[in-house]
């Protein structure tokens, strides 16, 4: 089977369409969450510096520190979440779709 035939077969597979829709929805939602939280952080800096400069209880550390470090952790953890889901769920599902597309040829 040519590459083009495999490709057409995959494209018509409803499981492929569902998988791609799910994966891309997940990717875009996660992107907007990250962008939204980062922009909220940046706008807080521009509009209300005092909120981030407020000390946490009677410590010297301010709320700005967990906010900043938290965003660094958010970046890492959101990618870890995406990677885990891709490795465990989407990759095997896609491999199955591809195998079927290639396999049907032999029958």
């Amino acid at each position: 089977m040519t590459e083009q035939e495999t490709l057409d077969r995959v494209a018509r597979d409803p499981r492929y369409q569902a998988l791609v829709a799910e994966r891309s929805r997940f990717a875009w939602i996660l992107s907007w969450i990250v962008v939204g939280l980062f922009m909220a952080f940046i706008l807080t800096i521009a509009l209300d510096k005092a909120a981030l400069a407020a000390p946490i209880g009677d410590r010297v550390a301010t709320w700005g520190i967990p906010a900043g470090i938290g965003l660094i952790l958010l970046a890492i953890l959101s990618i870890a979440l995406f990677t885990r889901r891709a490795n465990r769920r989407w990759d095997p599902a896609m491999a199955e779709i591809m195998a079927d597309a290639a396999g049907r040829e032999r029958q």
Binding site: W28, V34, L71, F82
Partner: peptide, 11 residues
Amino acid sequence: FLMGWPIISFL
């Protein structure tokens, strides 16, 4: 500098 990476990863 770090927040660009999730975008690279997802999209």
